[in-house]
């Protein structure tokens, strides 16, 4: 009978799928009933409907043409005088014209295919990917013949050196990348903070007096002279500091850190010990610092220990003092690496 049935036989009896349920003369499995009868569209039988579809497609294509013209009109016609209203208008005008031009063309083409091109289903036959036994034998024979001709099996010296050369040649490629960057050295562990360096306001600049900060104040800080650094952003990425003023009795400095604060003013690294975002959301009532990237939360009253979220280490504290005129300066650099963890960090 049909291809379909033969195909069904070939396939349906795969290993392990025979359902031994047949009884009497009843088939074990239903048979594929074959394609349903073709249902004609209105346009196939009614020339009026076909003409209507033809007109619809033509209207869509005309709309697309109008859209294309409108794109040119919007690009040339909308005055581009550097005012934002005009930029906004131009973006909308060009964009909507593009929509009309492209969308109407697409819909027109699809509508044409759907309504007027033949819609009776056609059939292609598949072939297994795997070759027939004869084809496979022939392929094996060819490969074998070629291998013999090359003599690679008879000449192990060539075979082995070929493998060696093949394995070795790509490896030097990696070494070409050697000068893509310097070795880390101790760059990850150091910042530009040094003893006596003044704290200045970020981004405005200018030294800060201890008396500038009221209770509950916070000031974003950069070391003085950061704008003169060769790589400003690199320096900023490590040196950003947040200065906060709390009631001095709320602070619980650990041993060795007793004199790191000035009248309840503490300075902590603003770079998250998790992934390096600026931890700058200071809640002055709870004294919590929140990182906006992954919600690590640090408690300023407990030396910025982590109290929530994915960070592990406390924010490093910058020891500060005041000079004779009352300006804040660093007692020293950070005593540990700031920012995200890395393998050699220890």
């Amino acid at each position: 009978m049909s291809e379909i049935e033969r195909a069904g036989d070939a396939h349906g009896q795969g290993p392990g799928t025979t359902l031994a349920r047949g009884q009497g003369g009843v088939a074990e499995k239903f048979e594929n009933p074959g394609l349903p009868e073709h249902r004609h569209r209105m346009g196939d039988t009614d020339p009026k409907a076909a003409r209507r579809a033809e007109r619809q497609v033509a209207i869509l294509l005309v709309l697309s043409m109008i859209g294309s013209v409108l794109i040119v009109v919007s690009i040339i016609g909308v005055k581009y005088d550097g005012s934002f209203n005009q930029i906004s208008l131009s973006t909308k005008a060009i964009g909507l014209s593009m929509f009309l031009s492209l969308f109407a063309l697409g819909v027109g083409a699809v509508h044409w295919a759907k309504t007027l091109m033949p819609d009776d289903e056609r059939i292609d036959y598949r072939h297994r990917q795997r070759g027939t036994t004869a084809e496979r034998d022939q392929a094996v024979a060819i490969l074998k013949e070629g291998t013999d001709e090359s003599g690679i099996a008879r000449r192990p010296l060539i075979r082995n050196t070929l493998i060696g050369a093949g394995v070795l040649f790509p490896i030097p490629a990696v070494f070409f990348f050697r000068d893509t960057g310097p070795l880390p050295g101790d760059d990850l562990s150091t910042t530009m903070w040094r003893e006596g360096m003044y704290l200045t306001k970020d981004p405005e600049g200018g030294r800060i007096r201890a008396s500038d900060l009221g209770l509950g104040s916070v000031v974003h800080v950069m070391p003085e002279g950061i704008e003169d650094q060769e790589e400003i952003l690199n320096a900023k990425a490590k040196a950003a500091v947040l200065l906060m003023r709390l009631e001095p009795e709320l602070l619980n400095p650990g041993s060795g850190r007793e004199d790191w604060a000035v009248d309840g003013i503490v300075a902590y690294s603003k770079i998250c010990t998790h992934m390096g975002c600026p931890v700058a959301l200071y809640e002055q009532q709870t004294h919590h610092l929140l990182c906006p990237c992954h919600q690590s939360t640090f408690d300023v009253t407990r030396e910025c220990k982590v109290i929530f979220g994915p960070a592990k280490r406390a924010l490093p504290q910058l020891p500060i003092r005041v000079d004779a005129e009352g300006y804040l300066q660093a007692q020293s650099g950070f005593h540990e690496a700031v920012g995200p963890s890395f393998w050699e960090r220890g």
Partner: peptide, 11 residues
């Protein structure tokens, strides 16, 4: 109906 492992039915 009419679709098998050995054919492809469409346009």
């Amino acid at each position: 109906p009419g679709r098998t492992e050995d054919n492809v039915v469409g346009f």
